[in-house]
Amino acid sequence: MEEWRFEPAHDFGLSAKQRRLSLRREVGLESAISCFLWRSITRVYLAIAHRLKIRGRENLPANAPFILVANHASHLDAIILGGILPLRFVGAVFPIAAGDTFFTKRASSIFATAFMNALPIWRKNCGAHSLGDLRERLLKGACVYILFPEGTRTRTGEMAPFKPGLGRLVARTNIPIVPCYLDGTFAALPASRTVPRWKKISARIGKPLLFANTTNDRAGWQSLAATVEEAVRALAT
């Protein structure tokens, strides 16, 4: 028989607060259950209040890891994309959320981690370091990121250019990026509102893109971001 191998949780030994802020956070049964409940409730809400339509579901890869990328207009976006992914990914899906919006207050950071399973990224000084950690985690296996490469919600309804940081996560790897376009989210819950309007929302999922041959440097990241942006824009029409 082989020697037993123990691999403690990667965030083992951290306090509850440190765990919430850690990019190494691993999800146990309790978060999986709370995320599942939240996913079920929001799916019903989106179906009734926003008559959510999804096209291109068949383009989603069968196995993790991959990154789901979309335009960003509202707080509903991550919830919609989390609900689109099949049930078996619950607990393995990590929306990458702005640390300075969701993780500075205790209550909102508990909500973001317990129900959305979000990982924080700090926009001011995130830099290469945390993106490197995220890349490593993705390479290790079973996780899916939900990412909005515009970096912030649109204030005008127009999609902003994608930031090249996305490239740092997948350049020179076989990890697919799945482009997705969300339509109607700006009308339903723009950044200026706190209560959603009952507007129709639709999501279109495109074919996965691979960047195994893109160089892992600034030029590569920029071309990668431009390619993905192009793919998302193509889905808009």
Binding site: F6, E7, P8, A9, E26, L29, E30, G91
Partner: peptide, 21 residues
């Protein structure tokens, strides 16, 4: 159990973890 599962890595086997609970 939660502490033990996190320390040994057993928590990654979610279906088995559900059985224990």
């Amino acid at each position: 159990y939660r502490e033990f599962a996190r320390a040994t890595g057993f928590f990654r086997h979610r279906s088995l973890s559900i059985v224990v609970v």
